[in-house]
Amino acid sequence: MATNLVEKAQIMDAEAIRRGMVRIAHEIIERNKGTEGLVLIGIRRRGVPLAQRLAAFIEEIEGRKVPVGVLDITLYRDDLTTRTDQPVVHRTEVPVAIAGKTIILADDVLYTGRTIRAALDALMDLGRPAQIQCAVLIDRGHRELPIRADYVIKNVPTSKREVIECHLTEIDGGDDKVMIMEKSEG
């Protein structure tokens, strides 16, 4: 019984995503009173271009570079022992020591909260940051853990039958867009 995904609606286009990124770039600077001690870390895969873009917007606004890192959470997943399609491990690349820094963790979709949980554990193993904040493109609800995002570009109420698909130029090619898909059994 294969499940297919059928597109229900496009909820964001490239321009909406860009405006949202600019807004949360400002929010990050405002809340942290500048860029001192900030490190942006993207969760593989689609958190990575988001972190890079946020860093570019922040540099445009403040005129200062913010370091960007890449986190692979495969080794920290809580479903490793139950998955049969064993995920491929990719490299974690964090270019600076994170102890005492303010980490902005970036991901595309916040759903159950399990990815962020794994990312928090992975970060703690790299050092002891002063704080960790979370920035996401879409918050779709249905949390299974006590985790929330500090910066959200768009809140999207969804049902569990639905799937959010983010297309980002750097990874998927084409224009940026976010779509709601629905699972149909067929």
Partner: peptide
């Protein structure tokens, strides 16, 4: 190839201050 690629990703753990992942 899969073993070599996976080792490429994991090698970084050996040079961390905390050399441990919970996998």
């Amino acid at each position: 190839q899969l073993i070599l690629d996976t080792a490429e990703s994991l090698k970084e753990i050996i040079s961390r201050p905390i050399k441990k992942v919970p996998t």
